[in-house]
Amino acid sequence: MTVAVVSLKYESARTGRQTLVYDADGYHLVRFPYEADEESYDPWGMHDPAGGGGSSTYPDARSGLIWPSHDGWGTLSALVFWGPDDRATEYRARFVRDPLNVAGGYDSTATTDISPTGGGQYRSYTWQMFVHPGTPVGLKVSARSGGSLVKPPITLAEFKLAIQTDVITP
């Protein structure tokens, strides 16, 4: 099996606090630095500041995009650690094809909604779908309280895509 992989990491202790900017859909596109650390991995150039023919500088919105290098079956996975916020009554996440509408249209999938636990708010997410070069994917998150958006800090986020490039057809 041939697999192309990208693994991104944001850590507030290294790159500073990420200000949540909620888009019209009520979600924040999580941004990831372009400078690799020991846990980031991008040999296929799927998190390139010039991805999709654009131009980007972290922490602009385009720094939240992964541009798949191949057509194939993609396994998306993410990890989000939220900082404390006593107001938040739910945390949401979703994977989105074309979250900035630069390649034909926003298409969200795998929206997850969960109530806070008594301890820290640490969440992991996984979804599988077909991915294509030219159509970026992103991780969007939201925290809410009684319908209102709140902005607890994200202290750690990881976003990964593994593309199986040898999907067979019958």
Rank of each mutant, 00 (worst) to 15 (best):
R144M: 14
T169Q: 10
D86Y: 08
H28E: 04
R94S: 04
I66N: 01
I168Y: 10
G104H: 09
M46L: 09
A78L: 09
T117M: 13
M1F: 09
S115F: 08
I168D: 11
P84K: 08
Q18H: 11
L29Y: 00
Q18V: 08
A93V: 02
A50F: 07
A13R: 00
S69D: 10
S124C: 03
Q18N: 04
E35R: 09
G83M: 00
R144P: 14
F95E: 01
H47E: 10
L20T: 01
R14G: 08
S145R: 09
K151F: 03
H132K: 12
G83D: 00
S63C: 02
S145H: 13
E158R: 09
I163K: 04
K140F: 03
T109N: 11
D86R: 14
D42R: 05
G72E: 05
R92C: 15
T2G: 15
V137D: 07
A88W: 05
V131P: 10
K160D: 15
K151A: 15
R144E: 09
G51D: 12
W73H: 15
T111Y: 05
I66C: 01
P152T: 00
G105K: 04
P43G: 10
W82D: 00
Y34V: 13
T111I: 05
I114H: 06
D71V: 05
R62Q: 06
E158H: 06
G134H: 13
Y27M: 08
H70W: 05
R17Q: 10
V96W: 01
D48Q: 12
G53L: 02
I66R: 02
R94Q: 15
V6E: 05
K151P: 06
D86I: 12
L161C: 02
P153Q: 14
D37E: 14
V80Q: 02
G83H: 00
L65P: 03
S12T: 01
R31W: 02
D166V: 12
H28F: 05
L8W: 04
A93H: 04
S40Y: 04
A93Y: 07
L65Q: 03
A162F: 06
Q128G: 15
V80A: 11
K140I: 01
W82H: 00
S69L: 09
P116S: 03
I168P: 02
H132G: 03
T117Y: 06
I154V: 03
D107G: 15
S56F: 08
S56Y: 05
T117I: 08
I154W: 00
M46K: 13
I163E: 08
R92H: 13
S55W: 12
A157I: 07
G147I: 02
Y91Q: 02
T89F: 04
D60I: 02
A4W: 12
Y125T: 07
L8Q: 06
A24S: 14
D23M: 02
V141I: 14
G16K: 02
K9W: 13
Y22L: 11
D71E: 14
A24D: 09
I114T: 11
